[in-house]
Amino acid sequence: MVRHFETRRGTFRAVDGVDVEMAPGTITALLGPSGSGKTTLLRLIAGLEAPDQGRVFFDDDDITAYEVQDRDLGFVFQGYALFKHMTVADNITFGPRMRKMEMDMQAKVNELLELTDLPGLGGRFPPQLSGGQRQRVAVARALACNPRLMLLDEPFGALDPIVRKSLRHGLRDIVRRVGVTTIIVTHDQEEAWDIADQVVIFNRGRIEQRGTPKEVGQAPASPFVMNFVGDVNHVPASCQFVRKVGFHTDKPFVMCRPSDYEVHTTFEGVEGAAAATVHDKANVGKLVRYYLRFDDGVDIDIAVSRRVDEQQYDMEVGQRVLVGIQPSRMMGFDYSELDASASVV
């Protein structure tokens, strides 16, 4: 648990009154744009930086004044920080050896190599491994001292998308099997949604929202969260579309998710929708993206899978359609509410 953490860097407030609680054995993702304070919070928890105020608790133990080596945690750095001149086995046992822990080192290496799907690779050196294998060695090393808490800072950032997805699932399984409480820092929403039990959204050193991925995705607490999490369209609050669907706000703009649109290719019996023309259509990988223009010149876009397009849309450029949405799925905003710049003290 982190209670009311604050820290400053020069004239900027990096973390401002943050409180985070993590249930044992769960994965918490700290998600936000660059400079939002998530990595700073991780370093504060690890003891790599000192807070101006606030406390850190492991269960009921106040560890705020503990040195890094006394905090009983494992750390996976963004670049993995493996020792190139050491074998995989020696990298894994580096922590226990430095702490002079009494354990069967070879048995521990074998256990962790099996756990991380690296059997038989203990004698290799890091340069002989793939990026994904090095990442798993870093996780094994972090677990070697049996930590109460594991911290991961952008652990998948240097890997290609296919490898990243596979390793995310592998890491989630490892955490479940070992039962270690884990905090992962990421700016990748898909990564957070794929792996975490709890998501904490950061902006300008403050927490905008926390909850399960489903809670944050379905009920964003602020315009910043809705804009940051998932695709959105921005339209003027005075436009024809907003008026037709019956949404009211005193803000100058409205955002909504394309996935919430109701697009009708027939006009009969449809109410609470605005007329639009299919302005353009593009094939984007596995998706089909439609660009729709309302009669007042306001544009929106919607992307659907090829299968959904074939079954439900299959629209042509120039085709007339009706677009509706539930007003509860819209949010009024001002662009100042989307500001992600550092908070000045």
Rank of each mutant, 00 (worst) to 15 (best):
residue 256 C to F: 12
residue 261 Y to K: 02
residue 272 G to I: 11
residue 284 V to M: 13
residue 262 E to I: 05
residue 269 G to I: 03
residue 279 H to M: 14
residue 260 D to N: 11
residue 276 A to Q: 02
residue 260 D to H: 12
residue 267 F to P: 01
residue 259 S to T: 06
residue 278 V to E: 11
residue 260 D to A: 11
residue 261 Y to N: 02
residue 292 L to Q: 06
residue 270 V to G: 07
residue 276 A to P: 04
residue 289 R to N: 09
residue 269 G to T: 07
residue 264 H to Y: 15
residue 257 R to H: 07
residue 283 N to A: 14
residue 265 T to C: 05
residue 256 C to E: 00
residue 280 D to M: 10
residue 291 Y to Q: 03
residue 275 A to L: 11
residue 254 V to T: 01
residue 273 A to P: 13
residue 264 H to G: 06
residue 282 A to Q: 14
residue 279 H to Y: 15
residue 286 K to I: 12
residue 255 M to R: 02
residue 281 K to R: 15
residue 280 D to L: 10
residue 252 P to M: 02
residue 255 M to H: 08
residue 271 E to P: 05
residue 284 V to I: 15
residue 253 F to H: 14
residue 281 K to N: 06
residue 266 T to W: 00
residue 274 A to C: 10
residue 289 R to W: 04
residue 254 V to G: 03
residue 257 R to V: 04
residue 268 E to L: 06
residue 256 C to I: 01
residue 286 K to W: 03
residue 271 E to A: 15
residue 266 T to K: 07
residue 281 K to D: 01
residue 267 F to M: 10
residue 277 T to D: 08
residue 279 H to E: 15
residue 267 F to T: 09
residue 268 E to Q: 09
residue 286 K to M: 09
residue 284 V to L: 15
residue 268 E to G: 01
residue 274 A to H: 08
residue 275 A to R: 15
residue 267 F to Y: 03
residue 276 A to E: 04
residue 262 E to D: 10
residue 282 A to W: 08
residue 257 R to P: 03
residue 268 E to V: 03
residue 257 R to K: 11
residue 276 A to L: 07
residue 281 K to M: 13
residue 290 Y to Q: 12
residue 284 V to K: 08
residue 254 V to Q: 03
residue 283 N to F: 13
residue 265 T to N: 08
residue 254 V to F: 03
residue 258 P to A: 02
residue 262 E to P: 01
residue 260 D to Q: 09
residue 262 E to H: 10
residue 290 Y to S: 11
residue 274 A to S: 14
residue 280 D to I: 00
residue 268 E to W: 00
residue 269 G to C: 02
residue 272 G to E: 11
residue 278 V to R: 11
residue 284 V to A: 11
residue 272 G to R: 12
residue 290 Y to T: 10
residue 263 V to Q: 05
residue 260 D to P: 04
